[in-house]
Nucleic acid binder design. Structure first.
Lengths: 265, 265
DNA sequence: CGCGTGTTTGAGCTGAGTCAATCCGCGTGG
DNA sequence: CCACGCGGATTGACTCAGCTCAAACACGCG
């Protein structure tokens, strides 16, 4: 399986943006100097003990915008922790329909849904040039046997993913298009905050189509909902630049609120 | 089957239907004589080694139809494996809206979504008089450290739950009311089969309302969809008695199929 | 400058929701 | 035994949020 993660460890030398001189030794991936380790697998490990995970995690991989980190039916060999950049995963049927299952940001761990069958269920596509830390699943299991906190951390990640999906189902069943959009943006905002970024201004990395798929809508409906929230003075969203002008209103919408009283101009 | 195990751990002693003499010793819960152990936590354990799980699992509990096995926000102390009967779990918002998250049958393990926060997220309600095997979560963790297959089994259960929810999202986003109903019935049928029951005839344990909630529809729409499938000669479903007359047609529907050609009478 | 991809806006259409009436099965009590 | 009531299920009539189809627009790129 070592053949698996060959290319793009360092990628073509013609990296377009980061044309800095290249480190001579492929960077050992240290959780301790990773900005998002607190959200990731090592959460709760003693001072992010490198003796533990350090030995495990392979050299980080660069994934180009638009290319696949893995595809459905690929055998599960490694989980992937996002170090920087972002991804979408999507579940596709034979008939060509599909849905975006989730968007993934630094600190998120991809591939947990493949543990049951040992084969990936989703396609994972980079939404921008990104880097991931590969975590060989077998070795993670072995290591977790000796580090109960690590096992616990893994359990929690999986459980949280189940809860996340519960909430998504709730959204799909109970919320209108505008409420879904509000919920989505508030969710993104929270995720940015927990990574140290602004709650009110950020950049979407996914297309309207992807947003629509995630929200169980058509892209036209997403556009219209954006337009309506903009008209209400809650948002300033053009193209992929988001500015949240009235966070309380947005959060009220998200909570099935905003259906009772008619909007006053 | 050694009859109707009527232990009654808690609850009034005046069991209304099963008024048989009570066993003197509370039945130790043996996975090895459980009909659904192959679907449950001990999957893959060496010959269902009782030295392992036997020590762990508390005496089984009876839950009356309509009463709660646990509620949202209860601290997670034990997982519950369904031994017989069935449950629904539902996620409810402060505003009173909610959705049925899943229906649970013998061999299913409830409570995995609580691992992340150590508090339950859902309410779990018995759909009929039921029995569960309580699995103390802390001790399960400890035991899993010594029995890697047990840990693996737990991981697989969680992962499978994630995948299940993926598929539910796909259903909610892509299928019409009739397709959802078809998908639901085929799913139930499969679950009955894997428990040794008929694929074509079974009894629903949930109300139309619960089905509707699970399917992201209104109960009226479920009724209408049932009526249409009945008119097509695919089903015979009255009240809670299901008879699947044309399984291939039902499965074709489930797969986003059936939209292209107009139905011929 | 033209092309392509992604986004926005418009104009109807429709599947599922809402509201309301009725029906059915079943337990209860007279 | 039947009348009654009650909760769940069914059916009908109407409405509307979001879909479809289609056209226009914006922007980046060779």
């Amino acid at each position: 399986m070592s053949g698996q993660l060959k290319v793009r460890l360092l990628d073509q030398p013609d990296a377009p943006r980061t044309a800095h001189p290249v480190h001579l030794k492929p960077l050992a991936t240290l959780c301790s100097d990773c900005r998002v380790s607190g959200l990731c697998l090592p959460t709760g490990l003693p001072i992010h003990d490198e003796s533990c995970l350090g030995a495990l995690i392979g050299p980080r991989m660069r994934i180009r915008k638009g290319s696949a980190l893995f595809n459905a039916n690929d055998p599960l060999t490694t989980l992937y922790a996002v170090r920087c950049g972002s991804f979408k995963t999507s579940l596709n049927t034979a008939e060509g329909q599909g849905v975006v299952i989730n968007f993934w940001m630094p600190g998120n761990v991809l591939g947990l849904d493949a543990i049951a069958t040992e084969h990936h269920v989703c396609d994972a596509i980079a939404l921008e040039d990104s880097e991931v830390c590969p975590v060989p699943y077998r070795r993670l299991q072995a290591l977790a046997r000796n580090f109960p906190v690590l096992q616990q951390s893994l359990n929690r990640l999986m459980s949280r993913e189940i809860v996340r999906e519960h909430e998504r189902v709730l959204m799909l069943c109970n919320l209108t298009a505008e409420q879904r959009l509000a919920s989505f943006l508030v969710g993104l905002s929270r995720r940015f905050v927990s990574r140290g970024y602004s709650a009110h201004g950020f950049l979407l990395r996914m297309s309207r189509e992807d947003m629509a798929s995630y929200l169980g809508l058509r892209l036209e409906t997403v556009c219209r909902s954006v337009a309506r929230l903009r008209a209400l003075g809650i948002l300033n969203l053009q193209g992929r630049r988001v500015e949240i002008l009235d966070m309380p209103a947005l959060m009220a919408l998200e909570q099935g609120g905003g259906e009772c009283e008619h909007k006053a101009p």
